[in-house]
Design a protein around this nucleic acid. Sequence first.
DNA 1: CCTATGACCATAG
DNA 2: CCTATGGCCATAG
Length: 102
Amino acid sequence: MTARRSTALKQAIWLVIAAIPHGRVCTYGDIANMAGQPGQARWVGRLLSELPPDSTLPWHRVVNASGKITHPNASKQVQRLQDEGIQTVHQRVALKRYRWQP
DNA sequence: CCTATGACCATAG
DNA sequence: CCTATGGCCATAG
């Protein structure tokens, strides 16, 4: 078994993402910070890339620090964001308006 | 051990 | 807007 990070650390990330309100978004860095793991934005993205296709986690509410969507299937993410009332322009959301920070 | 890659980020030019 | 740089970390080859 490769030495992966503890389930507790992963769970902290998942909990934060699950807590993002409907109609709001977060950045990868925000999530790392809120999960008590500052500077680990990259790992957050890595973790999300390993989510099962049928996951109920609102992964679509996560964008990068510029508000841009950098997901492999950007179209799908855009669709899901618009479905909950979040406006997107050229695969980008207005963080000033939708960013969620406790 | 090395390099390359990736749903990242801040800063500089 | 763009690219480059340095930092972060896991995984693959």
